[in-house]
């Protein structure tokens, strides 16, 4: 405390009086000497009595038990899932597929495959906000690079999302990835695009946008589903009999266990 007071007074003197700073220097010196003497050559200690009284350990719950399982239980964490690289591959493949309808749209409407590229990039360039269609139809290296970064990153992230989510909807992967997800994403973007990129909002053709989204979803979902799943650490936690394939029905097994512990507190 004395050292802190000394340093504080030293600086306080700058807004009050030199006398205060001098006092601060004095206190800082004295406190530094005191501190050094306490810790050098050996740190000063003082014995203190320790009361080794046992602290009671109790719990408000009764015995723990495993949750009774059934097929709808949420306790089973997936034992198999996709690798993270699966999402990346799917995203990149989807991104390439998405470029085709986008380029086709530019070609059909403006006779230039660069229109969609520049339109995407325009969100990042303030000076392009009022650009003409002719300008956006020309090739611009800056636009291509910006669009590549925006499109690449977005495709990657959406691909990762697909990789993570597709195992959750195993029944109709093509419908989920190729129709539901693109429509959902389009809806979200439709409501938010004005904030993200006003120029894109002014000129976007939603029909072609949905087409390119579906192209992305179908290809990304297809590539993700092609990849082999890997076992999660959760798999290691399963009993040996299940991991070895001796006991294949985990639900039956847990039901049996639950029956033994019925009535006990199951929270964990």
């Amino acid at each position: 405390m004395v050292l802190a007071l000394g340093v504080a007074l030293l600086l306080t003197g700058m807004v009050t009086s030199i006398v205060v700073s001098i006092l601060g220097v004095l206190l800082t010196f004295l406190a530094s000497v005191g501190w050094f003497r306490q810790v050098l050559p050996d740190e000063a200690h003082q014995p203190v009595e320790v009361h080794a009284e046992p602290v009671p350990v109790f719990t408000s719950r009764r015995l723990a038990a495993k949750l009774p399982e059934d097929v709808t239980s949420r306790k089973i964490i997936p034992v198999e899932t996709f690798r993270i690289t699966t999402g990346i591959r799917g995203g990149l493949a989807g991104g390439v597929a998405m470029a085709a309808p986008a380029a086709l749209y530019g070609w059909v409407k403006y006779h230039s495959i660069w229109y969609a590229v520049n339109l995407l990039a325009a969100g990042g360039f303030v000076s392009w906000i009022g650009a003409s269609n002719a300008f956006l139809s020309e090739f611009h290296l800056r636009g291509l690079l910006a669009a590549l970064v925006i499109h690449g990153l977005t495709s990657l992230l959406v691909g990762l999302l697909y990789g993570a989510m597709l195992p959750m909807f195993p029944r109709y992967p093509i419908v989920t990835a190729g129709v539901m997800a693109p429509l959902l994403l389009t809806g979200i973007l439709h409501s938010a695009i004005d904030v993200i990129s006003p120029i894109l909002n002014q000129r976007i053709d939603w029909f072609w946008f949905v087409v390119s989204q579906i192209a992305f979803g179908l290809v990304c979902g297809f590539v993700v589903n092609l990849q082999a799943k890997v076992r999660t650490p959760q798999f290691q936690a399963l009993p040996f009999s299940i991991r070895a394939g001796i006991h294949s029905d985990i639900h039956d097994r847990l039901h049996d266990e639950a029956a033994d512990t019925n009535g006990e507190d199951t929270s964990r």
């Binding site: 200690h45 003082q46 014995p47 320790v50």
Partner: peptide, 9 residues
Amino acid sequence: MATHIPFDQ
């Protein structure tokens, strides 16, 4: 049982 801790404690 005794132990050592900094003397200000």
